[in-house]
Nucleic acid binder design. Structure first.
Lengths: 196, 196
DNA sequence: TATTAAACGGAACGTTGTTCCGCTTTCAGT
DNA sequence: ACTGAAAGCGGAACAACGTTCCGTTTAATA
């Protein structure tokens, strides 16, 4: 379950009680704040306390951790997804567009403390995260990848899914180690992708 | 602390009590078995039960999780480290040697359920793992990297530390997803490293 | 065999995830 | 405005796990 709010369902959006809507909003705000300071794997209790609600309320609105994280970052993921076609239209070449788009994705991951880590974690509740992000972004990446392949800029045979996961994995880090810069490695990966 | 057995210390190896030595060996065997079935992050209790000892005994012999994991895999890490110079001497070129060595390292990681994951985990007890593996293998990698750079086979500017961590990250996976093959991505990374 | 210090076992405590149920609040129908 | 069901809420309670601590056991030595 990834859309607890039902905001994009097609049916006649069953309106929830006023206090429920208020709490959901409060929770999103509190979660966003806590994620910044304690990472996306902050204790549920901490988020509940910050929002001034009980833990049951969190679980009712966001049955899994992934639901909460997705809800908090949905706008940014959406923006990243929509940037794909735009970049493809505007950039000098499909490969350039791909590179810029990947930059966007990397920026998104590294600026969220622990997001990349959580996305690969096998801890309860995080597997759905993985699924949601990938479902939304893989098609976009595939489009860019195909365009670059058609233009003969990269060698064929690489799948968007694999590339996305690889990039995600490269973005995993602890604290800020100057010896490890995800961007450099992602750049290397893209260089390996390029024909010649 | 990473060498609880003191087997490689230089001092006059203070002999432990017989039962202590026996238990240490039993623990290593039990841990190795449990790691295969439940991953390296298996509950301490499970390992203790498997070995037929109390939990206190584990903590006495291996104060942190990393100590236990390192002890279990020390031989393989050592073998990997020693393979570096050998490959460099035998392979057709430094780059070929590097590629073969990286293959060895990747094999090691992907065949241990959850090792790569654990190595990047910020969960208590695992940070030392990271440190030990890297301390032992980075110099080896650096030697191969330098040789390849000197031979003009790869472009300069890449650090062994970063490369090793990147490879480690790429090896993180869940179950066996046919859509994600760490080897393909590592190959891509190396391709990006190669000059031209 | 008696002594002692090392080693042992596992109860106990703290932290976190997750569920469950009695109480409270909203709101439609009057 | 009133009222009664239904929706929602809070947090106690339980489970799983890491980690510590101390009374008891046991190997080594005299």
């Amino acid at each position: 379950m990834v859309n607890p709010a039902g905001t994009s369902g097609k049916g006649p959006a069953r309106s929830k009680r006023a206090d429920a809507q208020r709490n959901q909003q409060t929770l999103l705000t509190a979660a966003a704040a806590v994620f910044v300071t304690s990472g996306v794997d902050a204790p549920i209790r901490e988020i509940a306390a910050r929002a001034g609600v009980g833990m049951g309320t969190i679980y009712r609105h966001f049955p899994t951790r992934a639901d909460l994280v997705v809800a908090v970052y949905r706008h940014q993921v959406e923006a990243c997804a929509e940037a794909g076609p735009t970049l493809l239209a505007d950039a000098a070449s499909p490969l350039a567009a791909l590179a810029q788009w990947v930059d966007l994705f990397v920026d998104f991951l590294v600026t969220k403390h622990g997001l990349a880590n959580a996305m690969q974690s096998d801890t309860s509740g995080f597997d759905a995260l993985h699924t949601y992000f990938l479902d939304r972004l893989v098609p976009v990446c595939a489009q860019l990848l195909d365009a670059a392949t058609d233009a003969g800029e990269i060698r064929p045979g690489t799948r968007a899914y694999e590339l996305m996961r690889g990039i995600g994995n490269l973005c995993i880090s602890h604290g800020s180690d100057p010896r490890y810069d995800p961007r450099r490695l992602v750049e290397l990966l893209l260089a390996g992708l390029a024909r010649n």
